[in-house]
Write a protein that binds this DNA or RNA. Structure first.
Length: 305
DNA sequence: CACTTGACCTGTCCGC
DNA sequence: TGCGGACAGGTCAAGT
């Protein structure tokens, strides 16, 4: 999925595009992907206006003036793409280009007749606004979800109760970062970084990139990483997350922002998806191995166990 | 509890 | 060109 920088990029786009818009209709066909009591949809979603868009870890929250919120997780292949009523209806990146709208969403959507447009066969939900614009929730693999909840309940869902601190938070110091690994001595450092209850928002791309920056082999046990190296890892992690936000995130295959645009971080990536290429620091050939059940990229000369 | 593995899905790519 | 298997950015539940 979208990791922290991608979700943050989507959040910023939505904040610019949908605040104040009034929802007049919602259409969805994947019950697991859209969880809401039927009465809540009629009472608290339809007719409400969007008040704010926030993010916690990799979860987006769209707050409504009905005091309900849409809580959204994009997981691996989710997209939230806004298509305005007045301007071009073409997705600028060409992402999600597909075979045209499925039957279930047929019925006069303004994009229906155009190619490379939404809805497409990955579309799981469509929100329609009063001004004729639309927000599409697309998710090829159907891992993602949207929940409609009272705003006061959002922080009570299981994920929110256990998720760790935001790595880019103003009060998140190197010391706090080091403390977060307490009790995880026997886990590999990569598994610990990916564990959302340790640190929020880190996924496979930025774990590999940060570990390369800190010269740590991803399979190193936490107890074998010196505190000084953990502090370096803290710096490297914040560096790659900030850089990626600056570049609009990473697009490997599916990810696009709220306007359908790809992110360019992978042009700047040092190891992720660069197996077989030269390490930009030492020239050794980047390897791809498996750690914590995930594809893992590293420099075999500089990141040793 | 800490830690690992399989499951959830669809699509694509790679080797035979 | 077809087919099986591995793999893909995330998280849970269930296992050891």
């Amino acid at each position: 999925m979208p990791e922290l920088p991608e979700v943050e990029t989507v959040r910023r786009g939505l904040e610019r595009l949908v605040i104040g818009l009034k929802i007049i209709q919602v259409d969805f066909d994947w019950p697991k992907g859209f969880q809401a009591a039927p009465n809540d949809i009629e009472q608290f979603l339809i007719g409400s206006r969007i008040k704010a868009v926030s993010r916690r870890a990799k979860v987006l929250m769209i707050d409504l003036d009905s005091d309900y919120s849409l809580v959204i997780h994009l997981k691996m292949t989710g997209q939230l793409v806004f298509v305005g009523a007045a301007h071009s209806r073409t997705l600028s990146s060409g992402a999600s280009v597909d075979t045209g709208p499925p039957e279930r969403f047929a019925g006069g959507h303004p994009n229906d007749s155009l190619t490379g447009q939404l809805p497409d066969k990955s579309t799981r939900a469509v929100f329609e606004f009063e001004d004729g614009s639309h927000l599409f929730f697309n998710d090829q693999r159907k891992f993602g979800w949207i929940k409609l909840l009272p705003t006061t309940e959002v922080m009570n869902i299981d994920f929110m109760k256990k998720v760790g601190p935001e790595p880019l938070g103003a009060d998140f110091t190197a010391e706090r970062f080091v403390e977060r690994f307490t009790g995880r001595a026997n886990a590999t450092i990569k598994a610990a970084l990916l564990d959302q209850s340790v640190i929020a928002g880190v996924g496979n791309i930025y774990a590999d990139e940060a570990l390369w920056g800190a010269l740590i082999h991803p399979a190193t046990r936490v107890k074998d990483v010196p505190k000084s190296k953990l502090k370096t890892l803290y710096d490297e992690l914040r560096y790659v997350l900030n850089l990626s936000i600056d570049k609009g995130g990473s697009t490997d295959r599916n990810y696009v922002d709220a306007e359908g645009k790809k992110g360019s971080y992978l042009e700047f990536a040092r190891v992720f998806r660069r197996e077989g290429q030269d390490c930009p620091r030492c020239g050794a050939i980047i390897e791809k191995i498996r750690v914590a059940g995930r594809g893992t990229h590293l420099c075999p000369e500089e990141q040793k166990l």
